[in-house]
Nucleic acid binder design. Structure first.
Lengths: 131, 131
DNA sequence: CTTGACCCTGTACTATGGTACGGGGTATAA
DNA sequence: TTATACCCCGTACCATAGTACAGGGTCAAG
């Protein structure tokens, strides 16, 4: 049950490329595992660690931010509120983007409506004026 | 009132660096203005153009996509239907981005809710396990 | 004992969106 | 007139997040 994985197996199980695993190691997101005869041998929990990194990225965290999250995980004095704070900051970021996109959509729609009236010259419905 | 701006003044008014203005010119996002004695002299409307580029980027558009957005205005020789088509495509893009961000927000919120007791030490906090 | 699949390190390269720097030219004010 | 601030072009460099490749080493099967 305590099977160790080569980098290729790990990459495959975590759904990333071999180079990506080595890249994460260089970046300090995962620590170098023990080596047998020059080959990296990973315990299975590296799979979830890499999946965590990927998931975190999907949620909009950069690798550096993900790194911080992973460090919090290892910091025994870290409080739930630390992670919550970062999560809330991301939510705020996301909200802002959504609001801005909605404004942009409105502008684009105005532009579209304006262009539907083929008698109106384009110079009279410039997208720049709507921002 | 028809004041022309040097690159430095323009950059300052648009809240970007001088190098950024030249970079946008190289990328074709703004066209080279007239030059007086080897110096670029910009009409004031370049300010809003650059601000538009910045805004568009914040909304998740790449410079290439932003370029396309800007062409919606400037390509005055294009047929209205042509512009309309591209505008609709951009609206679809924006909608997709909004949907993606909403999904992200949902996931982040689920994380936040599961961790309301902020004094709990992280080792007992479920937030990271749910990533 | 050789072949092929995998592994190693190190470096270079991709794209995106800038930023910095070297080595000059110019414009304005004291 | 000379100091200073600004401008020019071209090239190199930065971060982000990988990806590719060169030139080796290792291991397990046949």
């Amino acid at each position: 049950m305590k099977e160790k994985l080569t980098i290729g197996k790990l990459a495959q199980k975590a759904n990333v490329g071999v180079e990506t695993v080595r890249f994460y190691e260089r970046k300090g997101l995962i620590k170098q595992p023990s080596k047998q005869g020059g080959f990296r041998h990973y315990p299975e929990d590296y799979i979830s660690r890499i999946k965590f990194i990927k998931r975190s990225q999907e949620l909009g965290f950069t690798l550096n931010e993900t790194s911080e999250l992973l460090e919090l995980k290892l910091d025994s004095s870290a409080k739930c509120s630390d992670v919550l704070e970062r999560t809330q900051a991301k939510i705020d970021e996301v909200n802002e983007k959504i609001e801005d996109l909605k404004k942009m959509k409105k502008s684009l729609k105005r532009l579209a409506v304006c262009c539907e009236d083929t008698d109106v010259s384009l110079s009279e419905c410039p997208i720049l004026d709507h921002f």
